Computed example of a mutant assay.
Amino acid sequence: MNLLAIDTAANLCAACVYDADAARELGRSVRDIGKGHAEVLMDVIGEALAAAGLQLRDMGALAVAVGPGSFTGIRVGVSVARGLALALKAPAAGITTLEALAFEARQKFAGDSVLAAIDGGRDGIYVAAYDGLGKVSYAPVVVDLETAMGLARAAAVVTGSAAKRIAEAAGLESLQIGSEAPTADIATYARLAVANGFSGEKPRPLYLRAPDAKPQTHLSLPRKES
């Protein structure tokens, strides 16, 4: 089975084609764009398919990064994945960025317990903790630096864009640091989707904070009484 994986949760706009039976990547396209995922995602998907020598109709499943991360980017990726899954009559799986980062860290550090931590800017730090087998020991949530430091003290590895900041603030010089990126390699999302299986549940964005856009209620007109 061929699988198409999509990641628009952070600065990257990425897609890859993955052969689930052979457990190997067939083609990819990755652009570091920062913003504007909606404008380029379909081109990126087309480039990944071309690199694999396949077409959309050859895809038997989809995987997509569901966050936490960029509110707009996540919405774009999940919407496209769900739309393609519907058109192809194929299952789609959502993988969190925290799970993907933790998976990569376990591969690098031989199965140690991992705290995945992504910098959420003014909103705090997005975190989740996993044991050496990948089971969630602290569910995804947004926390302050002090809470993140406490979680780091119980982990063998900290990974993600907030990892170094947490380790330094906690004075944990001996703590192993994994990736310092806000998202994992695109093929990791494909591998995890295959490993986790397809439950039939549609991918849903994992938002750990409220959206930046707020209704402009001060511009609304008072309703007239009938």
Rank of each mutant, 00 (worst) to 15 (best):
A48E: 00
S199W: 11
N2D: 13
A90T: 02
L88R: 10
L219P: 09
A117C: 01
A50D: 05
I74F: 03
E104I: 05
A117W: 01
A128L: 11
E39T: 15
R75D: 10
L62S: 03
M59G: 01
E104Q: 06
R31V: 09
V136M: 12
S161T: 01
E180L: 15
D7F: 08
D7V: 00
V78E: 05
I166G: 00
L219T: 15
A213M: 05
F103D: 11
L49I: 04
K224W: 12
C13Q: 00
G34W: 07
K214T: 12
L206K: 06
A155V: 09
L54P: 03
A184R: 04
K35W: 12
G124V: 10
K135E: 15
A22K: 05
P222W: 11
S174T: 14
A48Q: 01
S226F: 14
K35L: 15
V78N: 09
Y18P: 01
Y126T: 01
K164W: 12
P140I: 11
D32A: 13
G200I: 12
S226H: 15
L56V: 11
D58H: 07
A51Y: 00
A210N: 10
P205E: 01
D32H: 13
K202V: 14
A14T: 00
P140A: 05
M1R: 11
G34S: 07
P203W: 11
D58R: 04
V136Y: 11
P140Q: 03
A116C: 10
R223V: 15
A23M: 05
G67M: 06
A10G: 00
A213Y: 01
A128V: 06
L88I: 10
L115I: 07
A167K: 14
E225V: 15
L101C: 02
K89I: 09
E25M: 08
A20D: 04
V78R: 02
R31S: 06
C13A: 06
Y207R: 07
G36V: 14
T147V: 15
T97A: 14
L192H: 06
V78G: 07
G73K: 04
E225Y: 13
K135W: 12
A81R: 06
A154P: 04
A148Q: 03
I45F: 02
A167L: 12
P211D: 12
A63C: 09
E104V: 04
A81W: 02
A20P: 02
L62Q: 02
G120I: 04
K164N: 14
Q55S: 15
R223L: 15
R106N: 03
A23H: 08
R191M: 05
A93T: 10
V66P: 06
A169S: 13
S199M: 09
G197W: 02
D58V: 02
N11F: 06
K224Y: 10
F198L: 08
D131K: 10
V157M: 07
P211V: 03
P91Y: 09
V66T: 13
A23I: 05
D144T: 01
V78W: 07
G171Q: 08
E168D: 14
T96Q: 08
R223W: 13
R75T: 10
F109M: 09
V157G: 03
A5P: 00
T97D: 02
T147N: 10
E39Q: 12
N196G: 12
E39H: 14
